[in-house]
């Protein structure tokens, strides 16, 4: 039961009259790496943002580690969670964005330390040690005092990963983490993610990196038009797609 980290049940999401998600069912087990593929506009990023309640879903349920995201069910009625409770749920879910979204007015070290110090109110000395260790792990131990604007895109994204990890999340969400990078910088970010996967982190990765999905992924989801078209073991889906849509997409990106 608690073996399942993410469970989505019939998730619907609309922006105005535009229905972006039309019933997503999904299960990610603890320790699994789930890669989400699909053309742009297929709703994969939106779905990821629904998982940590950055977007409110219109119908369905999303559970993370058994907790219903964003709501409390009491007496058969759904109550919206207050800001504080939503924040508490988000603490254990790390998120990495396509455009890094590092805090430009803080040094790399301050970026990583901010949330553990302010949100979890941990002692500064502990957090500093952990932050330095994390930055070392992503290969940026020498850049602690730099500002994000002084780093390359790949370095910034690795800091963003360290920043998310500093909260000791049980789940990591990656929203096209390498799409904004120069081709030669993609590798360094993927290496960090592979390392993370090897350590047993549960990850949901929206990506266009087929190679990464094949090599690291335990599960591959192919989305199009707001529905899951196909899912399965990455190697099988990539080598032998069952659906016409999947085949067409893969033939274009491979």
């Amino acid at each position: 039961m608690s073996d399942v980290m993410v469970r989505a049940e019939n998730v619907h999401k609309s922006f105005g009259s535009l229905e972006v998600l039309k019933g997503i069912d999904l299960e990610v087990r603890a320790g699994e790496v789930c890669c989400v593929l699909g053309p742009s506009g297929s709703g994969k990023s939106t779905f990821l943002r629904c998982v940590n309640h950055l977007e409110k879903i219109n119908a369905g349920r999303i559970f993370v580690d058994g907790d219903l995201m964003g709501y409390r069910e009491r007496g058969g009625k759904l109550h919206e969670l207050g800001e504080r409770d939503v924040a508490k749920q988000r603490r254990s879910i790390g998120m990495v964005f396509q455009r890094f979204n590092l805090f430009p007015h803080m040094t790399v070290l301050q970026n990583v330390m901010e949330a553990p110090c302010r949100v979890k109110r941990e002692s500064k000395a502990d957090v500093r040690d952990r932050a330095v260790a994390l930055l070392d792990r992503v290969g940026l131990g020498a850049k602690t005092e730099s500002y994000p604007g002084q780093l390359s895109g790949g370095q910034q994204q690795r800091v963003a990963i360290a920043r998310a990890l500093a909260m000791r999340p049980k789940l990591m969400l990656f929203d096209e983490p390498t799409s904004a990078l120069d081709p030669e910088l993609v590798g360094e970010v993927l290496d960090v993610m592979k390392d993370l996967a090897r350590d047993g982190m549960t990850m949901v990765v929206v990506t266009h990196e087929i190679g990464f999905a094949r090599e690291v992924g335990d599960k591959l989801i192919f989305m199009d038009g707001g529905v899951v078209v196909e899912q399965g073991a990455p190697r099988e889906v990539i080598a032998n797609p069952q659906h016409e849509r999947t085949r067409a997409f893969l033939s274009k990106v491979l």
Binding site: N52, L54, E83, R84, A87, K88, R90, R91, I93, G94, M95, F97, R99, N101, L102, F103, E114, A115, R118, V119, A160, R163, A164, M167
Partner: peptide, 17 residues
């Protein structure tokens, strides 16, 4: 940038923080 708020909120920071 709106992304700044999103990143901060995703880390579990409150609106005031």
């Amino acid at each position: 940038d709106q992304g700044q708020t999103e990143a901060a909120v995703a880390l579990g920071m409150s609106r005031f923080q």
